[in-house]
Design a protein around this nucleic acid. Sequence first.
DNA 1: GTTGCCGGTTTGTCCGACAATCATACGATC
DNA 2: GATCGTATGATTGTCGGACAAACCGGCAAC
Lengths: 249, 249
Amino acid sequence: MNAETQRVRFDQILIEPAYRKVAAAIGERILSRSLREGERLPPETELARQFGVNRSTVREALRELESGGLVMRRPGSKLMTVSRPQHNAIAEGVSRALVMHDVTFLEVWEALTIIEPPIAEAAARTRTAEDLASIAAAAERFAALNTDTERAVHYAAEFFRSVGRATHNQVLGLAQEPLLQLLEPSLRVMIDEVPQARSRIATAQKRIAEALRGRDVEGARTWMAKHIRDFRKGYEIAKIDLELRVTAE
Amino acid sequence: MNAETQRVRFDQILIEPAYRKVAAAIGERILSRSLREGERLPPETELARQFGVNRSTVREALRELESGGLVMRRPGSKLMTVSRPQHNAIAEGVSRALVMHDVTFLEVWEALTIIEPPIAEAAARTRTAEDLASIAAAAERFAALNTDTERAVHYAAEFFRSVGRATHNQVLGLAQEPLLQLLEPSLRVMIDEVPQARSRIATAQKRIAEALRGRDVEGARTWMAKHIRDFRKGYEIAKIDLELRVTAE
DNA sequence: GTTGCCGGTTTGTCCGACAATCATACGATC
DNA sequence: GATCGTATGATTGTCGGACAAACCGGCAAC
C-alpha cells in the first residue's frame, strides 16, 4: 500500500458546450415523441430565442441531430422536419466505424455466415406474399443482368435486404445493412473476376426463394449458408486476400 | 400508354450545402488514412482558409464529423484529433434509430436469440486466456451483487460484451452492442420484479463460461440459447408486454 | 388546371469580435 | 531533478449582425 498507488481519485468533471446541450435537449424531445415524425422544427431564430443562445449555436446543434438522422429536410425543401433515421444512413455510420477499426473481409464474411442463415430461417416463417414478390423480383433482376456489374452487385445486395425485410424484424434488417455495404465493393471485384460467380449466385438465390415460398425453414437456412460459403470460395478464386482491410465505398 | 404516365423523367438534382461538402472532404481524408488516428486536425481558421469558406461553415462541418465519431477531442482538451469511432457511441446512434422505428421488445429479443448463440459458438473457438478471465470476472461480479440492481444490469450486459470480444470479430461485437443497450432498461425491471432472475442468469453465465473454457462449441451455443430464452420467460413473469416499444435510456 | 408573380420566411453563408481556456515554454522553488 | 507558478500566444465557444438565395403560400391571369 505505497503512496504512489493510493492517490485520491476524482471523477472527471465534464463540461459540455452549449451546442451539445441544445442538441441533447431537442433530441430528447424527439425520442420521447414530444415532437412527432414529419412535424416541422421551429425556425432556427425561434429555437435560438427559446434556448437563449445564438443562432450559430443552434445551427451547430442541428448539424449534430441531422447527421444522427433525427431531423432531415424533405428533398428539395429547406424546412427541417423531425424524421426517423433511414436505415442506410445509420448503417453508413456503422460501416465507417468498422472501416476505421481495420475490419477485415474475413470478419465481415464471418459475420454474414452467422447472421444470414438464421435470418433466412426466420423469413421462411414470417414471409408474406408481398415479401416473396420482392425477393423474387431481386433474384430475377440479378439473373437478367449479364454485363452490368454495378447493377448486378446492387441486386445481389438487394436480395439480402428483401429477405431481411421478410423477417419483419427491423433489428435484423438494420443489423445486416452495414455488412451489405461493406460487402458490395468486394462483390464487385468478385463478379468481374470469377466467371462462374453470377450463375452460382443466381442458383442460390433461386433455391432460397423457393424454400421461402414453401416455408421450408430448414432449406432456407442451409441454402443461405451455402450461398454465403460460396462467397468465400469466390474470394479465394478472385485472389482477394481475406485478411485485407475493408475500405469505404 | 396514356400521356399522364409517359412523362419524361429527370433525376433529382441535389444541391449540397457547403458545410456538408467540407465535412465530406475531411471525412474522406480520414477514411482514406490520409489523416491518421490521433493526429490533430488543423485549426478551424486554417481549415476555413484552405476550403475558402467561413469559420462558421467549418464548425458546422466539424459537428457532423464529431457526431459520427470521426473526430473528437481527448478529455480536457480542446484540440480536435482524428479518432476511430467508439463502439458504444456508434451503437447509441443505432439504438436511437431503432427506438424511432418503434421496435418492440419482441424484436430485440428475437434478434438476440439469433445473434448470441452463434457468437458464443464462435467465442468457444477463438477465446484466449485473457478473454476467459474477463468473462469470468463479469460473471463473478454479477453473482456477487445481490442488491444493487443498477450494477447487476451493467454486469449482465458486460458478460455479453466480453463474450462478444472473445470472438475477436469486431463486426459481431459492434452488431450486438445496440441490442444490449436496448436490453438494459427491460433487464432492470425484470431483475427487480422476478426473484429467481438473478440466480438463473448467474447459473447460465457460469455454464457458458465453463463451456468456453473447455472449448465446448456445442455447449456454449446451447447454454447461450437457454440464457436468452430465459429472458423471455422473465419478461412474461414480470408482465412486461413483449409488443411494447423499446424506449431510450 | 397550369402558369406567373409577389411578399414574407427561412436558411446558408459571411464578417467581425471577444472572453475563456488550452498549449507551451521559461524560470523559480523545493 | 521534479514540481510548480507564470507569461504568452493559439484556439475554441459563443455572440451579434448582415445579406442573398431559395422556399412557401396565396392570388391573379391565361
